[in-house]
Amino acid sequence: MEPLIAIVIGAIYASAIYMMLRRSIVKLVIGLILISNAANLLIFTTAGLTRGSPPLIPMDGSALPEVVADPLPQALVLTAIVIAFGVLSFSVVLIRRATEIMQVDDMDQMKENAK
């Protein structure tokens, strides 16, 4: 399972960077969204994928079972998703405002217009 997810994450990173290198500002935002999701997936995966064993002590036991999923990365991912959501919604609004003011969707032309 891990190798497959690792490849998927790599592909998302690659496509995000490709999108960010385009000149269009809308594609830049899509790239940003992709790259933050790739980072979230990466954290999720680095701690190892353990299926179907939550870190809960069973009713009739006094200790955790041998193999459980690590809950910490999931907490980290939750935090990271919330932060990324806030930052990305800000950048979407920013880019909407910017294109509204400048009337272009191209980084180079934007630089010309700003002068």
């Binding site: 830049l28 933050s36 954290i43 920013l94 934007m110 217009n113 700003a114």
Partner: peptide, 30 residues
């Protein structure tokens, strides 16, 4: 106007840096 153009660069570069930081933290935890 000028603020918008500067802000797009600022936001993008800082977001990318945060993502690299976050990935590094994830790998470090792993």
């Amino acid at each position: 106007r000028a603020q918008m153009e500067g802000a797009i660069k600022y936001v993008t570069l800082n977001l990318v840096s945060s993502v690299i930081f976050l990935s590094a933290v994830g790998l470090l935890y792993g």
